[in-house]
Amino acid sequence: MQIFVKTLTGKTITLEVEPSDTIENVKAKIQDKEGIPPDQQRSIFAGKQLEDGRTLSDYNIQKESTLHLVLR
C-alpha cells in the first residue's frame, strides 16, 4: 500500500509499505529516499509519536494515510 510522509519543509514523500511493516522499517525506507538517519526521525500520526517496534497496523495506518516527519 502507499502512504505519504510530509516533512516540515512541506515536501511529501510517497512510500510503498505493508500494514505489517514496523515503524523502524518505514524510517529505513525514508532514509533510502531522503538520506535522513532513522535516529533523527520522529514520525507523528494523528497527533501521536510512533514507536519503532510497533507496526503500521498497530496505529491503524491505512493506505494513503499521511505521516508527519519531524527531525530531532
Results as ranks from 00 to 15, higher is better:
22 T>I: 04
36 I>F: 11
68 H>Y: 15
5 V>T: 00
60 N>E: 07
49 Q>C: 14
19 P>T: 08
2 Q>C: 10
18 E>H: 14
18 E>S: 14
23 I>A: 01
38 P>N: 09
3 I>N: 01
70 V>S: 06
7 T>A: 04
14 T>A: 09
39 D>Y: 12
28 A>I: 13
8 L>M: 13
61 I>H: 02
30 I>F: 06
8 L>R: 11
41 Q>E: 06
19 P>A: 09
37 P>K: 09
27 K>G: 03
31 Q>Y: 15
15 L>T: 00
59 Y>V: 01
24 E>Q: 12
34 E>M: 15
16 E>R: 10
50 L>W: 04
69 L>S: 02
2 Q>P: 05
42 R>F: 15
46 A>H: 13
5 V>D: 01
35 G>E: 04
71 L>H: 09
38 P>R: 13
44 I>C: 14
14 T>P: 06
55 T>V: 05
21 D>P: 00
5 V>R: 00
36 I>A: 07
22 T>Q: 02
14 T>K: 09
35 G>M: 05
59 Y>S: 02
47 G>Y: 06
16 E>Y: 13
40 Q>K: 11
22 T>G: 02
28 A>P: 00
68 H>K: 07
58 D>Q: 07
61 I>T: 01
12 T>K: 07
35 G>Y: 04
32 D>G: 08
54 R>S: 06
41 Q>D: 06
30 I>H: 02
33 K>D: 07
50 L>C: 03
47 G>F: 06
18 E>M: 14
59 Y>R: 01
37 P>R: 10
52 D>C: 07
34 E>W: 15
55 T>C: 02
9 T>C: 14
50 L>E: 02
33 K>W: 11
11 K>R: 12
37 P>C: 08
4 F>C: 03
47 G>M: 05
49 Q>R: 11
41 Q>Y: 15
60 N>M: 07
72 R>T: 12
17 V>Q: 00
67 L>V: 08
52 D>N: 10
19 P>R: 06
24 E>W: 15
20 S>R: 08
65 S>C: 04
15 L>V: 07
6 K>W: 06
44 I>D: 03
28 A>Y: 12
55 T>N: 02
72 R>Y: 12
49 Q>T: 14
36 I>Y: 13
14 T>I: 13
28 A>S: 11
55 T>K: 10
4 F>H: 07
32 D>N: 10
23 I>P: 01
18 E>Y: 14
49 Q>H: 13
51 E>G: 04
71 L>I: 12
32 D>I: 13
69 L>H: 02
16 E>K: 09
48 K>R: 12
59 Y>L: 05
63 K>R: 11
53 G>S: 12
72 R>N: 11
34 E>S: 13
17 V>C: 05
51 E>K: 07
20 S>E: 10
71 L>N: 07
61 I>P: 00
45 F>N: 03
57 S>Q: 12
1 M>S: 02
24 E>H: 11
67 L>N: 00
23 I>E: 03
61 I>W: 01
10 G>T: 02
44 I>Q: 05
27 K>V: 08
11 K>M: 09
33 K>V: 13
57 S>N: 09
12 T>Y: 10
20 S>V: 05
41 Q>P: 07
37 P>H: 11
3 I>E: 00
51 E>S: 06
63 K>C: 04
68 H>M: 13
64 E>Y: 15
4 F>A: 03
38 P>Q: 13
11 K>C: 07
30 I>C: 02
42 R>V: 15
62 Q>H: 11
19 P>N: 05
72 R>H: 10
43 S>L: 15
7 T>P: 02
62 Q>Y: 08
66 T>M: 08
16 E>G: 05
8 L>C: 15
32 D>H: 10
17 V>P: 00
7 T>N: 04
46 A>N: 15
10 G>Q: 03
44 I>P: 02
4 F>R: 05
37 P>Q: 09
7 T>K: 02
44 I>V: 10
30 I>Q: 00
34 E>F: 14
9 T>Q: 11
2 Q>L: 14
1 M>V: 04
16 E>P: 03
65 S>M: 11
28 A>H: 12
38 P>Y: 14
63 K>I: 05
4 F>Q: 03
43 S>R: 05
3 I>S: 00
23 I>G: 00
54 R>G: 06
21 D>E: 09
1 M>Q: 00
9 T>S: 13
58 D>T: 05
34 E>D: 10
36 I>G: 09
51 E>Q: 10
35 G>S: 06
30 I>T: 02
32 D>R: 11
27 K>D: 01
50 L>S: 01
53 G>P: 05
48 K>Q: 13
60 N>V: 03
11 K>A: 08
34 E>A: 13
7 T>L: 15
58 D>A: 04
3 I>R: 01
19 P>H: 04
49 Q>F: 15
53 G>N: 13
65 S>V: 05
38 P>A: 14
40 Q>I: 11
26 V>F: 05
21 D>V: 03
21 D>K: 00
61 I>C: 03
19 P>I: 08
36 I>E: 06
4 F>Y: 13
41 Q>S: 09
72 R>L: 13
20 S>T: 12
49 Q>W: 15
71 L>D: 06
66 T>L: 09
59 Y>Q: 03
24 E>F: 14
18 E>K: 13
55 T>E: 01
27 K>H: 09
63 K>V: 07
14 T>H: 05
21 D>G: 02
69 L>C: 04
7 T>C: 09
67 L>Q: 00
36 I>H: 08
63 K>G: 12
70 V>Y: 12
58 D>F: 14
32 D>F: 11
46 A>L: 13
28 A>Q: 13
31 Q>M: 13
63 K>Q: 12
3 I>V: 05
47 G>D: 08
41 Q>A: 10
66 T>F: 07
25 N>D: 11
29 K>V: 04
60 N>I: 03
52 D>G: 06
45 F>R: 04
26 V>D: 01
67 L>P: 01
10 G>V: 01
52 D>R: 03
56 L>N: 00
31 Q>R: 12
13 I>L: 09
45 F>T: 03
15 L>E: 00
70 V>N: 04
63 K>P: 15
10 G>A: 02
61 I>Q: 01
59 Y>K: 00
62 Q>K: 11
6 K>T: 09
20 S>K: 07
21 D>H: 04
17 V>H: 00
10 G>F: 04
